[in-house]
């Protein structure tokens, strides 16, 4: 038996619905249709009345989730595409994220963002939004890169008493597979050493972890051992694990699929430079998507985001410094 990243997300939601009567799912096309990506397939049938189709109203969808959370429910919101969370941005960052600080009443909502680029999806169905949400206090931002993490972190997201932005990568939905669902999990807030190595550290998250792993394989054949740190959640960001890795390797390359101005890679490099400057044998490097909207055509799209090829080139440059 094998299970995909997408099936793990579906199974986590099924388990949350089965185990906790406070959980419900609300979003566009999530009901009988089972969601645009089938992440809620059959859940409306298995849990009648608890998987509800919403009008195309992202602001009101998040607003209603906040109200339900105040009343003690634990809503899971599907945004269909991460890009479409922008009409709900106000309720997320100004309302959900501030509620606990202002009132001491928790706001346990999970907002699922089908994130990242897939070939042919273009500027409005390809975005990675994690940087925007991580900037705001009061939100937790998860970026699972494995089937196991998609499952266990989604369950933890639902169980947490805070609003969670759950960035699930569309490219991983169907082609990333595991043998089975995990029975135990690394807690949110801890990064994972995806591959040990001694010559340089690549810090990545979400789909970029897999590009980085491919680079590590390639460079291993040339005698270079690359260590890969999978951040798992970008807020909180596990600086300790990153720093420990850089202490071992002395070289840091941080890779992200979102845009180059600011963001996760800038945050990681900034923290390492401020707190671990003496650990570095070379200037820390970062690699991001190009500073344009995400292009539609596969030729352009493949060149827009970091890939194993561009990461390998950046890694070789860093090794020569």
């Amino acid at each position: 038996m094998s299970i995909t990243y997408l099936e793990a997300i579906r199974e986590a939601q099924a388990r949350a619905l089965a185990e906790d009567p406070r959980v419900f799912i609300y979003g566009q096309d999530v009901g009988a249709f089972g969601g645009a990506f089938k992440a809620t397939k059959n859940l409306a049938q298995e849990f009648p009345g608890r998987v509800i189709d919403a009008p195309i109203s992202e602001d009101a969808i998040v607003g209603a989730a906040i109200g339900a959370a105040v009343e003690g429910m634990r809503p899971i919101i599907e945004m269909q595409f991460a890009d479409f969370s922008t009409p709900g941005f106000n309720q997320i960052v100004n309302h959900a994220a501030t509620l606990y600080w202002r009132t001491q009443v928790p706001c346990p909502i999970t907002i699922r963002l089908p994130s990242g680029g897939t070939s042919g999806s273009g500027p409005f169905h390809s975005q990675s939004m994690e940087t925007l949400y991580a900037h705001y206090p009061g939100l937790i931002v998860m970026t699972p890169a494995t089937v196991e993490d998609a499952y266990s972190m989604l369950l933890e997201a639902v169980a947490l008493d805070d609003p969670v932005i759950f960035c699930e990568h569309k490219l991983l939905y169907n082609h990333l597979k595991a043998e089975s669902l995990p029975t135990e999990a690394v807690p949110v807030g801890k990064a994972r050493l995806a591959r040990p190595g001694r010559d340089m550290t690549i810090v990545a998250y979400s789909a970029m972890v897999h590009e980085a792993l491919a680079v590590a394989d390639e460079l291993a054949s040339e005698g270079t051992e690359v260590e890969i740190v999978d951040l798992r959640s970008i807020k909180p960001l596990d600086t300790d694990t990153v720093m420990a890795s850089v202490a071992r390797t002395g070289r840091l390359l941080c890779v992200g699929e979102s845009w180059p101005w600011g963001g996760v890679t800038a945050e990681v490099v900034s923290r390492v430079a401020c707190e671990g400057f003496g650990l570095l044998d070379a200037p820390p490097q970062r690699l991001n998507a190009k500073d344009t909207p995400v292009p539609y055509h596969p030729n352009l799209w493949a060149a827009h985001r970091p890939t194993a090829r561009s990461i390998a080139a950046a890694a070789r440059r860093l090794l020569r410094i």
């Binding site: 109203s57 009101a60 607003g63 209603a64 109200g67 105040v70």
Partner: peptide, 13 residues
């Protein structure tokens, strides 16, 4: 912004 939040409390009920 408060209208949808009130809606959510009523959905929860």
């Amino acid at each position: 912004a408060m209208i949808a939040v009130v809606n959510g409390t009523l959905l929860a009920r």
